[in-house]
C-alpha cells in the first residue's frame, strides 16, 4: 500500500495532452547535392487535433493527430546547359559530311534555383503508441553543497516529472500534390524569364522559348527524374532528406523529454514557510505512474 495516491481522469488527461500538442513546434532546414542538381529545404510545422485513448494495458494511443506544415519550401538548383541551334552545312563533302559548316548560335549556360512552395500541406501521424515515463529531475543549477531547503530557496528544487513516452511514432509520407509539376514548371519558367535580359525583343523571347521547348521535358531530362514529378519530390523529401525521420524523432523527444504532463517538487511542500518557521516538506520516493481506460494513477511513498 503506497503512502500517496493521485489520480487524473481520462478527460483531465486528454486536456493535458491537448495543451502539450498545441505547444509543439518544429523547424529545420538543410541542403545537399544530388549530382545533376542541389536542393535545399525549409520546414516549420505544428501539431493539431489528435484523439487520446487510455488502455487497460498501461498504454496510450493517439489517433487523428495532424502535422501542419506552416512552411515547406524546396529550392532546386541546377544549371541549364545552354542551347546551340541554327548550324547547317554550306558545302557538303562527298562522304555525307560537311566541308564548310555555318556555325550555330549558342545561348550560354546559366544556373537557376526555382522554389517550390508547398506551405500549408497537412500530413498525418498514423501511429502514436505510448506509455508513461517517470523522471527524477535534478536541476543542473543546483550546487552540490545545497540542502533541499537551500535548493528551494534558490528556486532550483529537484522534481518528479511524468512524461508521455512514445514507443512508436509513424507519420504518413508527405503527400506532394500532383500539381507540383505545374508549380515546378512555372517556377522554372519564371527563373528563365528573369534571366533573359530586358533588351531582348518580344519575337526573340518567343523564339528562345520555342528553342527551349517543353519545360517539363527539360526538367525531367536535366534532373534525371524517372516517373512522376510528385513522386520524385516526395522521395527527395522523405528518403533523401529524411524529413519524416527528423519529425518523428522531434515528436518523440518532445513528448518523452521536453514537456511533462505533470511535475512536482521533491521534497514536496506540505506547509509554507512563515516568518518564524521554515517550510514543512516531505520527501517523495518510489513514484510510479500508470494508466487504465478510466484514469491516470500516480503512486508514491514518503521517504526518510
Amino acid at each position: 500500500m503506497s503512502d500517496i495516491t493521485l489520480a487524473a481522469s481520462a478527460n483531465a488527461f486528454e486536456q493535458i495532452f491537448t495543451n502539450i500538442v498545441q505547444n509543439f513546434t518544429y523547424s529545420k532546414s538543410d541542403t545537399a547535392s544530388f549530382g545533376p542538381f542541389s536542393a535545399s529545404y525549409a520546414i516549420a510545422l505544428h501539431l493539431q487535433d489528435g484523439t487520446l485513448t487510455l488502455n487497460n494495458d498501461n498504454t496510450i494511443d493517439v489517433s487523428d493527430l495532424e502535422i501542419v506544415f506552416d512552411t515547406l519550401t524546396v529550392d532546386v538548383c541546377f544549371t541549364l546547359p545552354g542551347w546551340c541551334v541554327g548550324g547547317f552545312c554550306v558545302v557538303p563533302d562527298p562522304w555525307n559530311g560537311c566541308l564548310v559548316p555555318f556555325p550555330g548560335f549558342c545561348i550560354g549556360a546559366f544556373s537557376i534555383c526555382p522554389t517550390i512552395d508547398l506551405s500549408g500541406l497537412v500530413s498525418e501521424v498514423t501511429e502514436f503508441d505510448a506509455g508513461l515515463r517517470v523522471n527524477y529531475y535534478v536541476d543542473p543549477a543546483r550546487l552540490p553543497g545545497w540542502s533541499d531547503l537551500d535548493a528551494e530557496l534558490h528556486g532550483h528544487p529537484n522534481k518528479w516529472q511524468i512524461f508521455i513516452n512514445p514507443t512508436l511514432v509513424d507519420i504518413n509520407p508527405i503527400d506532394v500534390p500532383a500539381t507540383v509539376a505545374n508549380i515546378l514548371e512555372n517556377a522554372v519558367k519564371n527563373a528563365i524569364d528573369s534571366a533573359i535580359p530586358s533588351w531582348v525583343p518580344g519575337w526573340a523571347v518567343d523564339l528562345l522559348w520555342d528553342i527551349i521547348g517543353p519545360i517539363l521535358n527539360l526538367i525531367v531530362d536535366l534532373l534525371g527524374i524517372v516517373g512522376d514529378i510528385a513522386d520524385w519530390l516526395e522521395s527527395l523529401l522523405d528518403d533523401s532528406f529524411n524529413i519524416l525521420s527528423f519529425i518523428e524523432t522531434a515528436i518523440t523527444d518532445y513528448f518523452a523529454g521536453q514537456y511533462p504532463i505533470y511535475e512536482f517538487e521533491d521534497p514536496y511542500p506540505v506547509l509554507e514557510a512563515t516568518p518564524t518557521l521554515i517550510p514543512v516538506k516531505i520527501p517523495i520516493r518510489d513514484l510510479t505512474a500508470t494508466v487504465d481506460s478510466q484514469e491516470m494513477v500516480v503512486l508514491a511513498n514518503v521517504g526518510a
Binding site: 548560335f105 550560354g108 544556373s111 527563373a191 535580359p197 533588351w199 525583343p201
Partner: peptide, 27 residues
C-alpha cells in the same frame, strides 16, 4: 544570373554580303 545572349543576334535585322555580320558567311 544573366543569360549570355549576344545582343547582335537580335538587333541586326538585315544582311549585306558587302558588310558581313554574325548572320552571314562568305565562302
Amino acid at each position: 544570373m544573366v543569360a549570355t545572349l549576344d545582343r547582335n543576334f537580335f538587333t541586326q535585322i538585315g544582311l549585306d554580303s558587302g558588310a558581313l555580320t554574325m548572320l552571314g558567311v562568305i565562302v
